[in-house]
Amino acid sequence: MQTTAGEIRFQELIDADEKVEPRDWMPDGYRKTLIRQIAQHAHSEVIGMQPEANWITRAPTLQRKMTLIAKVQDEAGHGLYLYSAAETLGISRDEMQQLLHDGKQKYSSIFNYPTLSWADMGTIGWLVDGAAIVNQIALQRTSYGPYARAMVKICKEESFHARQGYSILLALSRGTEEQRAMLQDSIDRWWWPALMMFGPHDSDSANTPQSIEWKIKRVTNDELRQLYIDQTVPQAHYLGCTVPDPDLRFDVDTGHWSIGLIDWDEFWDTVKGNGRLNRERITHKVKAWDDGAWVREAATAYAHKQRTELEKTA
């Protein structure tokens, strides 16, 4: 098989740690992997609005309410930004959205868990945005230019979210017994799902080797997860809380925290659509989209009328 100039150029960019840009030639698999990954990332930002929007109307103070609204708004912005990045690969936002609605593209399974107390607003910021940050810092060095740049921009806001989340939890940790119980219960519910956010073990991750070779992925799932565990466990302890893992221990030889077994059945169940709220999340999304059809049609019709008017007068 002959190697084309495009292929050579692509490999040179990858080898030199330079960015691949939309106009560069790229292997089909590279394009497809990126579309899948960026779309999934964008969908996660958008579906992720729901579990937090669930508490906006019930936030306990005006300041917390405003901060939460601003956070959910940021996530919508991240969604927009990522959809644009994916669009540079030759797919439209509407197409991606349709794939999401049809269950053909996924979003992060973490958002299929319900938010059952105010403490969850803190835990999501701390654990979920925290995990996203660990992932996304690595992705700032991803080989596809538009994706890497989106990550740089998004990471700044995510670290703000993580800090705000932790501040909610700090307030609870300094509060009454009821508040501390609310806090511990929340950590108990979110800890394992958060660890699952990094995906299956490297040994079970079909896409990892190729993605690493293409430098889409720079660090493996298990490496990222360990990094996350090491930074997060002490933060849980600082809150006066435990994580729900009887096997958790600090390994003095390696300097790392080691954890018990992750329940991969729960992980795959949720990925396959049988998590706590998979159906509700998509139903909500599809309903908002369908309910808005008449609005989008009207906007298009109006814009068309305006153009026709303009042409008449021109």
């Binding site: 958008v46 729901q50 929007a53 906006i56 609204i69 708004q73 908002a288 808005g292």
Partner: peptide, 22 residues
């Protein structure tokens, strides 16, 4: 307005509604 966040006809309007609410 806050009740409506995540229910808008498009993502841009979710952002706008959030702004109004804030």
């Amino acid at each position: 307005l806050a009740e409506y966040i995540s229910e808008a006809p498009e993502l841009e309007e979710d952002l706008a509604i959030g702004n109004l609410s804030l």
